Computed example of a mutant assay.
Amino acid sequence: MKTFKLISLDIVENDNSVEVPLEDGLILNKEDEHSTWLIEAYTDLSKYDYFKKIYETGREIIVEAVITKKDNAPAYFQTRISSLQKFEQHISVLFQGVLRRNKSDYSELLLDNLIQKGLQGEALLNEFKEKMKSKPKLKVKDS
């Protein structure tokens, strides 16, 4: 099992993403036969009702996580909430899921996004270089 620091977390829903303001967070690669990952987000109490609705329905959600360093490309996980704990001022949300390898290559997602915007040639190359440095959030298409 390997443990990493969770730097940022977003919930990806349709064409939107909901930023989860982290007080703290961890992500664990269980390195089991199912390639399971656990993501714990310790966040503001104001998100409790949002996560409670997701938890009660048991539906799968895609999360975008930046791990270890702010500069790292985000990784996408297909998850379910396995635990939701309420504290005085914060909540702990535990997600369990698998890495979506086909969604984890940021450069491919970025290039596809720029091509969809109609960029080509020198303009495409310049925008790609700029965005690879700034790493803006991208919309994720379902497989």
Rank of each mutant, 00 (worst) to 15 (best):
K52T: 03
T57G: 03
R59H: 02
S92T: 04
Q85E: 15
I81S: 08
D71M: 10
E88A: 06
K137P: 00
N102G: 13
K5A: 02
L6W: 13
Q116R: 11
E40K: 15
D49T: 04
R101C: 01
L110I: 00
V93Q: 06
Q85M: 13
P74L: 02
A75G: 03
D105W: 00
L114G: 14
V66A: 08
P74W: 06
H90N: 13
D49V: 03
F128A: 01
F128T: 00
N72K: 05
D32G: 07
K137L: 00
K135P: 02
N113L: 01
L9H: 11
R100N: 06
K52L: 03
S8A: 08
M132D: 03
H90E: 11
S17A: 08
S107R: 00
D112A: 13
I27W: 00
E130A: 08
E64A: 14
A123Y: 08
D71T: 15
Y76G: 01
G121I: 06
F77Y: 14
L26F: 10
Q89F: 06
D32Q: 10
V12I: 11
V140C: 07
S17P: 00
E33N: 11
Y48E: 12
N126E: 15
T57H: 04
K86Y: 08
I115E: 14
Q120P: 00
F87K: 15
A75L: 07
K137V: 00
S104V: 04
I27L: 07
R100Q: 10
S82M: 12
T36Q: 05
K141R: 10
N126F: 04
V12K: 11
V18R: 13
L26Q: 10
E40G: 07
H34E: 05
Y50D: 07
I39M: 03
Q116S: 09
V18W: 14
K70C: 01
F87N: 15
K131L: 04
Y76H: 04
I27A: 08
K47T: 08
F95T: 11
Y50A: 01
F77V: 06
H34N: 05
G58F: 04
E23M: 12
G118C: 12
A123P: 01
S82F: 06
K137I: 09
L28E: 15
V66H: 13
L6D: 14
H90P: 01
I39T: 08
T57E: 08
I39E: 05
I91H: 13
K2P: 07
Y76D: 02
D24T: 06
F4K: 15
